[in-house]
């Protein structure tokens, strides 16, 4: 049974408890008092499908599918406006990121969401050498939509690139292997271990 089905089976009708049990800071959701200050404070509010206020209401109304496949959590930029203003002190961005991560794990995150794509590219890039290879990360962003548009993007930012080279803000040799942190294998081991613990926890929770 997939993790998603296992969770469905376990929590049946109570998505609020599923969120409380599996999502980082998810036990805060029940404390939302629906004042809407977060929704009004979010600078990107217009660009989202659902405001945090709505997401929290949907969780209580058992809209599991709708919540987990929403693009809203992926749009949060962690500006913390909502946290500062929430009268109940809910850690809203943490909950939003927690929901995003949970949706990804269950395989319910929205397909072809650019933020989700970028997050993956960033993670893989970082994991390789233990630090972000900015040149490669930039290039993969340029070439996201194919070769032709990538060249076009690169040409448009030509001057900026040259200036960064001159100011030694960009290392051209990173094009090849790039430099790694001291104990890259140690890091890989740590991350693997953390992922194992997390997966085991979810696995246990689903039973």
């Amino acid at each position: 049974m997939s993790l998603n089905n296992a969770m469905l089976e376990k929590y049946r009708n109570n998505f609020l408890q599923e969120v409380a049990g599996n999502v980082e800071q998810g036990d805060w959701v029940k404390m939302c008092m629906q004042c809407g200050v977060c929704a009004g404070s979010c600078p990107l509010g217009d660009a989202w499908e659902h405001s945090p206020q709505k997401i929290f209401m949907m969780i209580r109304a058992n809209r599991r599918e709708q919540v987990l496949s929403s693009d809203s959590m992926w749009m949060c930029t962690s500006c913390y406006h909502c946290v500062v203003r929430c009268p109940r002190g809910l850690p809203i961005p943490h909950i939003m990121h927690g929901l995003a991560s949970y949706a990804k794990r269950l395989g319910l995150a929205p397909k072809s969401n650019p933020t989700l794509w970028f997050a993956e590219v960033f993670w893989n890039n970082m994991l390789k050498k233990g630090r972000v290879n900015e040149l490669k990360l930039g290039l993969s962003l340029y070439f996201k939509d194919g070769f032709a548009s990538g060249i076009k993007q690169a040409m448009a930012h030509q001057k900026l690139g040259i200036n960064m080279l001159k100011a030694k803000r960009m290392a051209p040799m990173d094009m090849f292997a790039g430099h790694a942190i001291k104990d890259i294998f140690g890091l890989h081991k740590m991350i693997r271990k953390a992922q194992e613990i997390e997966a085991a926890k979810l696995e246990a929770n689903s039973k």
Partner: peptide, 25 residues
């Protein structure tokens, strides 16, 4: 409009939420 006046008001509301009473506007 959830009205919880008086000294007990807000704390009692939070208590209800802690008990997982579903508040739906």
């Amino acid at each position: 409009h959830l009205r919880t006046p008086g000294a007990a008001g807000e704390d009692f509301y939070c208590s209800g939420q802690n008990y997982e009473v579903t508040f739906r506007k």
